[in-house]
Design a protein around this nucleic acid. Sequence first.
DNA 1: CTAGGTGCAAACTCTTTGCAGCTGA
DNA 2: TCAGCTGCAAAGAGTTTGCACCTAG
Lengths: 141, 141
Amino acid sequence: MQIMSNENAHSETDLRAEGVRVTRQRLAILHVLREASDHPRAEDILTRARLQDPSVSQATVYRTLAMLEKAGTVLRNEFDGAGARYELADRHHHDHLIDLDTGVVVEFQSPRIEQLQAEIAAELGYEIEWHRLELYGRKAT
Amino acid sequence: MQIMSNENAHSETDLRAEGVRVTRQRLAILHVLREASDHPRAEDILTRARLQDPSVSQATVYRTLAMLEKAGTVLRNEFDGAGARYELADRHHHDHLIDLDTGVVVEFQSPRIEQLQAEIAAELGYEIEWHRLELYGRKAT
DNA sequence: CTAGGTGCAAACTCTTTGCAGCTGA
DNA sequence: TCAGCTGCAAAGAGTTTGCACCTAG
């Protein structure tokens, strides 16, 4: 496993071009991530990947997710304390609003907040590499 | 341990008023939190608390931090994946900027970002209970 | 063919918990 | 006094890793 490009890899072809072997297991895991819209945990990804390829192991799920994260293909989130939740990094950057009652994760984007963050960092003498903004709330009555 | 008030407890007296026993161990842990300015981990808190009272155990640190978190006395952060980091909740709300090179945590506050967050949540039909904003960056050159 | 990937199971890290003895109010 | 707190050690949850075998290219 060696990621050489600075571009994010989003397809099997991209990965192959990076020198990464495209295995049955990795295809199954990528398939799960493409179908998912619920920010699944490693355990969920394992269960779903096994529907397509029962041979997938827990170790491979973790190793593949770590590899894909480094490749820029997936994003790792830690919303609650109960383990990481993953999503494909194939759309525009966005932040998350977590419904405290249902656990549902709503995605949103706000250029204004992004800009304010950059301004604040600049005032403090920093350049932002990345950030994490999570809102935890309940449906307004 | 029973927290009845809605107000945050910030002193031994407050805690006693809540029906919480003020023990040597808890005083040592509170002392550590008051002295700390580096968002220490549970392990750091244990080490420092033992300087004041060598009998403090790991279990008590975790139990006390959980209790103080419920009481609104401390805030639990999960900046990196390597375990929670704690701070006293005795000042105005603030967010964090983590220096990727040194690990140093810079605190900042921005009423404008807070307001934007509330507006975004409202647009999505939500009311924010709490939020987490972490900027990860490097000193500007 | 062979470097890289995989399954299995053991190990690791951080945190929680059961239990018998201790102690603050 | 005695409910609540504590230390100890064991248990948990989530994740990582060593190793021998397997397989994509």
